[in-house]
Design a protein around this nucleic acid. Structure first.
Lengths: 193, 193
DNA sequence: AGTATGCGATACCGAGCGGTATCCTGTGAC
DNA sequence: GTCACAGGATACCGCTCGGTATCGCATACT
């Protein structure tokens, strides 16, 4: 089953590294043998490519969901967004481990227009749009261009995930929310938690 | 020469991955053969360990330098710090590639108290101290505990490095500084660039 | 029932790697 | 000048892994 192989690959690759996990390992984790993998994906690289496609799509959707349906003042929305992103990041420790590995591959391959790059651009644009709309509907002015803020949100998500994987207890669950709230706080607005 | 081998290892490991670069490759890049590596470090893991020690020490010192000798109002210092960190991050693209690989190893090994973890704690504590002192000497109140701010600085540095390696032009050079300035901005302080 | 199709298992190959054992050579002590 | 030694080169081993060729078997179609 293609689905089972992709899930097993995501898990094994995250745990042991893409180079560290053999095709045999992945197949065995899914209850199959190598033959199944080569029958479906042709090569190990083919499996990795399919995995990139699969997981980045899911990641993009998760990101879109996170910025959707926020209500209230802008800093309240920012806090809620931070909490959502933290929750997702905390429960899916494997994802970031895998993500950084795929990202490394993409950087080293240096082939512009890779799947990862495209999905990143899409996510960034979508988040930037959402931020703009949220700011407008909340009647607030953004302290930075929406595109820059989107980048900061992504960078913080990734950066805090790094720290969380080293020391899960070192990162307060509400840190992301508080930081984002500070970033969109209006000048002269003295509201502090 | 031990130094040459470490430098070559840093470069080769960053470019091709720790698993992707063979001991032969590293030695050749330094103008030697395998024998030199095994004579100095005993094993590939020994080389990696020595490299972790070497580079994290340098990184820690770079971090300490960055938070040192800042002057002026708190947000001015924050901006200057951001610019320094951006400059360092931009010119040393290789380091972050290597850092994430070493970080992955540490997370997967899951041996608490690794060198990387200790250096991270030290850096975080030092940055937190520096932030506290800067806040005090500038007569400002911090919107978040210094330890949390230190974590945010580190997370942003790493997160923006990720983005910069994917698309160098997507990250404005002054973004880090502006974000940090926003974070320490005093309520009621309407100064905006 | 017979047959075709395709997924997955099995056995095998070649290459590259980490590691080791041994040899070579330049350098310093006396 | 001789000797000892350490840093490094060379040759080699064994193992693991990606990849391939082939086979077996279940399902579906006629």
């Amino acid at each position: 089953m293609r689905r089972a192989l992709l899930d097993a690959a995501a898990h094994e690759f995250a745990r042991r590294g893409i180079d560290g996990a053999s095709v045999d390992d992945v197949a065995a984790a899914a209850g199959f043998t190598k033959g199944a993998v080569y029958s479906h994906f042709g090569s190990k690289d083919g499996l990795v490519d399919a995995l990139v496609e699969d997981r980045t799509t899911a990641y993009l959707e998760a990101g879109l969901t996170a910025v959707d349906g926020l209500e209230g003042a802008l800093d309240v929305r920012a806090r809620a967004l931070g909490d959502r992103l933290s929750a997702v990041g905390t429960e899916q420790g494997d994802w970031h481990l895998l993500f950084f590995e795929l990202w490394q591959r993409a950087v080293r391959a240096a082939e512009p227009g890779g799947v990862l790059g495209r999905q990143r651009d899409a996510l960034r644009a979508a988040v930037a749009d959402a931020i703009s709309e949220h700011a407008e509907s909340a009647g607030a002015t953004l302290p930075l261009p929406a595109a820059d803020l989107a980048l900061v949100v992504m960078a913080l998500t990734n950066g805090l995930a790094v720290e969380r994987l080293v020391g899960p207890d070192d990162v307060a669950p509400d840190l992301m929310g508080r930081v984002l709230a500070l970033l969109v706080q209006q000048p002269g607005d003295a509201s502090r938690s």
